[in-house]
């Protein structure tokens, strides 16, 4: 029996439907060198939730996706998708989930309509039956429906892939880095589509290396090197940031970063866009103290402001914790 059921206060019988995804100490080790890609990862995704796996490349996100979609056997631990065991009941899982891999994997020599129709028939359904699910996305593609998938632009390919993953009305949708390599406008559009899908009560597990997308999820898991650093709602993760964070700017940024890096009053500092983000060891610091400290170090045009940490700040904090 999985950890989740044992810890829950509800008796199992009262649960009408199992959670969408339960991962319990999921582990994956690759190759002869025994590289641990996923290290005893446990998390749970409720039905209808938009759950994000956030982490840089190599954090193990894709390996988790491939295990949950039954493409890869775990080397340790277990997981349930829709209440089905990913190893024993892989056939059932393949009937109910939708998977959109990070790399475009539809048939480039078939047209949009043919690809969509193929994946509909594979799942024993028709485009008409679930048209309402893909309608918003498909209307943008419909003009090109006789164009071959290989000849589409990046954003169009991604929309088509999403349509194909949705056409059988999956209960759980797995989206592996759907916005990587997509322009900012299309990324925004894509997340709006996900929000609308959530309203259809489809559970979505999405991975992304972009920290700014984390706040668009209901809950997120921050990942690094195969382990989960924190799981919570984006707000809660931001609230749990223990320090006071300052954004600092000066005329000569490289020099400023150097000063912050060597000063013994600074706890952490790093470049963040056009600012440097820093926390200080003692909380007595006011903006003015920081300014005078930096002026003393020879900085000009100093701007210091206290800011709300972002998910990225939390991630960096967790990395150094």
């Amino acid at each position: 029996m999985l950890q989740y059921y044992m810890n829950t206060t509800e008796p199992m019988s009262t649960r009408i439907t199992p959670p969408a995804i339960v991962a319990d100490n999921l582990t994956k080790v690759y190759g002869a060198e025994k590289t641990t890609a996923v290290n005893a990862v446990s998390f749970m995704v409720e039905r209808g939730e938009l759950f994000g796996l956030i982490g840089p490349d190599g954090a193990g996100k894709t390996s988790i996706f491939r295990m949950l979609t039954t493409l890869l056997l775990p080397d340790g631990g277990n997981a349930l998708v829709d209440g089905h065991d990913i190893v024993k009941d892989y056939q059932q899982i393949r009937h109910t989930v939708g998977y959109m891999p990070g790399k475009f994997s539809l048939y480039p020599d078939l047209t949009i309509a043919e690809n969509l129709n193929f994946f509909a028939t594979v799942f024993n359904t028709t485009i008409e039956e679930n048209y309402h699910l893909i309608k918003d996305i498909y209307v943008q593609l419909e003009r090109f429906k006789d164009r071959r998938a290989g000849k589409l632009s990046g954003g169009m390919k991604q929309k088509l892939a999403l349509c194909c993953a949705l056409i059988h009305k999956p209960t759980v949708l797995f989206l592996d880095e759907p916005t990587t390599g997509v322009d900012p406008v299309s990324r925004k559009e894509f997340w709006e589509m996900l929000k609308r899908l959530k309203e259809q009560n489809i559970t979505i597990l999405v991975s992304t290396p972009y920290m700014d997308e984390a706040t668009l999820c209901d809950r997120i898991a921050l990942m690094q090197q195969g382990s989960i650093l924190a799981i919570d709602t984006p707000d809660a993760i931001i609230k749990s940031y223990p320090d006071i964070l300052y954004a600092i700017r000066a005329e000569k940024m490289p020099a400023l970063l150097k000063v912050l890096g060597t000063s013994n009053t600074v706890a952490t500092s790093y470049a963040f866009g056009e600012y440097a983000h820093a926390t200080f060891k003692e909380h007595i610091h006011q903006e003015q103290d920081i300014v005078s400290m930096l002026q003393y170090a020879g900085m000009d045009n100093i701007e210091v402001k206290r800011i709300q940490p972002t998910i990225e700040d939390c991630f960096i904090k967790l990395l150094h914790a």
Binding site: T70, R94, Y99, P101, L106, F119, N124
Partner: peptide, 13 residues
């Protein structure tokens, strides 16, 4: 190579 085999593998085929 195209990755389509993976996409097929996550279907009831």
């Amino acid at each position: 190579e195209a990755g389509t085999i993976e996409q097929i593998n996550v279907t009831p085929i």
